[in-house]
Design a binder for these strands. Structure first.
Length: 261
DNA sequence: CCGAAGACCTGCTGGC
DNA sequence: TGCCAGCAGGTCTTCG
């Protein structure tokens, strides 16, 4: 579910309500979301104060006065402040000195962990890397461009929606070989990624089925999708029917006319 | 190094 | 109407 724009929106919606709060008590009830010793994790959090919250790739980093708690929302994870409608599938509860934060996740693909090693293996932030560095990294790889964009150690934060949308904006076929892209096309892709992510953040992310921010609010970038979820519909640029194929095991949407091999 | 496939979960939908 | 295969915004492991 949540890619960089959604996670960024969640972080921004939570920050004013969480920073400075003390965790009075925590409880976890899923062996998938919180692998390992759940009561030990809860004990470690009790009494800690939240001093900061930030995003790294698709991860949420909750900086505490001692240590860092890392949350990944997986496909259907939500962090909800009190007042946001919750319901079923609550697998984490953080009782704060003022208010409550809940973790909801029907599919339990998300993770709540203490200093996971995966963070260290993340690639650069797409909104921070410069065009030269991006182009160099991209053209050094023989992989197909779509699977590469989904590789979090190559670039941290893109997922299936924004990879497809960025490739459309850049006019690049998802199965193009990265090392064979010209410098000009690599630069176009760099700019397209920046544009798509920035616009999506401005629209508070894409809400297709599950995604909401910390208050339960939906995003609306989905109305601006050009290819994702638009199989068979006319391309906004040229009118050709949008096609859907499988790449990297994921549904991949593109315009066969605007994105030639 | 690269890609495909299967695994981890639950819920919804589209086609028969 | 009702059932079930297939699919879903993510990531990891295994295998060729």
């Amino acid at each position: 579910m949540p890619e960089l724009p959604e996670v960024e929106t969640v972080v921004r919606s939570l920050a004013p309500h969480l920073i400075g709060r003390r965790i009075v008590q925590a409880a976890f009830t899923s062996k998938f979301v919180t692998p390992g010793n759940r009561s030990k994790l809860a004990a470690r959090l009790a009494g800690r104060t939240i001093v900061g919250i930030q995003r790294r790739g698709k991860f949420i980093l909750l900086a505490l006065d001692q240590g860092t708690l890392v949350v990944h929302l997986g496909m259907t994870g939500r962090l909800l402040l009190d007042g946001a409608p919750a319901g079923e599938h609550i697998y984490g509860v953080f009782a704060l000195d003022r208010g409550v934060l809940r973790y909801q996740d029907p599919r339990q693909f998300g993770r709540i962990e203490w200093n996971p090693r995966r963070i260290a293996r993340l690639g650069p932030e797409p909104l921070e890397i410069g065009v030269q560095e991006f182009s160099k990294r991209l053209r050094a790889r023989k992989a197909r461009v779509k699977p590469l964009l989904l590789d979090q150690s190559f670039l941290a934060g893109l997922g299936n929606i924004y990879a497809d949308e960025a490739l459309f904006a850049a006019g690049i076929h998802p199965l193009a070989v990265a090392s064979r892209l010209s410098a000009a096309r690599a630069a176009r892709l760099h700019q397209a990624i920046r544009d798509v992510l920035t616009l999506a953040i401005e629209h508070r992310g894409s809400s297709i089925s599950d995604y909401v921010d910390g208050h339960g609010g939906r995003g609306w970038f989905q109305v601006l999708h050009n290819v994702y979820g638009r199989e068979g519909q006319p391309c906004a640029r040229c009118g050709s029917a949008i096609r859907k194929i499988t790449a990297a095991g994921r549904g991949t949407h593109f315009c066969p006319n605007c994105q030639r091999r």
